[in-house]
Write a protein that binds this DNA or RNA. Structure first.
Lengths: 191, 191
DNA sequence: GTCTATAATCAGATAGAC
DNA sequence: GTCTATCTGATTATAGAC
């Protein structure tokens, strides 16, 4: 069964765009509906509540993003150095965010603002994403210090997730920003 | 005239705490009032609107934070290397955020969610903060590339501002996190 | 300076026609 | 599957007593 242009998908696409651009706190159901080419009450034919729409956008975003990163890393041969695997993940994450995937950007922007019950549920999916990064960082860590790689992971993801909020198409393209992020995190600003 | 425990200050303190912990979208006037030991309508004796409270928290946060960082950097002698000035700023910023200054954390958490008209006004104050970082980074940049230091600044501030959202008092104290942030940004994760 | 009572507004959700 | 009309609840804001 094709999902091509169904109402459901139009709603999710619109919600992802709104969540990416305005954030959770400012996302209005009427605006989501407008972006999907319908009026607010029509959404309830497809979803039980506004929160259900938001939650599905979050889960999709995490899933799509994780799949994209894993694919870009695992295509590298088994002989690839851990640092190069980490580099590939950084580049893949930033490129995905900046190449217009509203779902992953919605997660980057709005995850922290979700109501706590929803956040708990979404966290289960987020754990997969998080632990993949943890493994990449541990493998590439020169020190091997556990607490340090945990802090480094928090810093890294916050840094990468910020891209959609300040990036504007211009002289530097997504790939250049992505490579600079990798250079900066791995090599430092003033080595 | 002492501002010690005036209603005005209690409201601002409470609002800063709420904005730091729940974000702009979830900040309720009734909860701000409760934290200040009064009921919601009493706030209007001190402020014209909820937005006015929020805006004053933002301006205070930016001002306090900038002043703190500048003080910690400018206490260094004029012979201090640019990299060490940048390092001092990074450490100062993280320590300030993690040592419980609700105002600076409120800015870090909620600035991106402000309604656009307010954001424009607050941006004027934020520009002072931003340009101080720009100067520090340009001075310490080995490459001197303008576009690159701009991107590096965005990444740096996003990374540092994320601290309050994930830091929990434990084995690592604020100073250790702050130093690790500086080591990571300046030296890189896998040099 | 803070309260109670209430107005005004808005957003999410439901009912039922088409 | 989408609409119009309406309900319900929450939230900001105002009026006026104390």
């Amino acid at each position: 069964m094709s999902d091509g242009d169904s109402g459901r998908k139009r709603i999710l696409d619109s919600a992802a765009f709104i969540l990416r651009t305005k954030g959770f706190g400012a996302a209005r159901l009427s605006e989501i509906a407008q972006g999907a080419g319908m009026l607010a009450p029509s959404i309830y034919h497809h979803f039980k509540s506004k929160d259900e729409v938001v939650e599905e956008v979050m889960l999709s975003g995490i899933y799509r993003n994780t799949r994209h990163i894993v694919a870009k890393v695992e295509v590298l041969g088994p002989e690839t150095a851990p640092v190069d695997r980490l580099r590939a993940a950084i580049v893949a994450h930033v490129e995905f965010l900046l190449s217009g995937d509203d779902y992953s950007s919605a997660v980057a922007r709005s995850f922290g603002d979700l109501p706590s019950e929803m956040k708990q549920r979404v966290l289960a999916a987020y754990a997969t994403f998080d632990s993949y990064w943890r493994d990449l960082l541990v493998a590439a860590s020169p020190s091997g210090n556990d607490a340090q790689t945990t802090v480094a992971r928090k810093f890294l993801i916050a840094m990468l997730d910020s891209c959609p909020s300040w990036y504007r198409a211009g002289r530097l393209g997504p790939t250049q920003i992505a490579n600079q992020a990798a250079d900066l995190f791995l090599g430092g600003f003033a080595p």
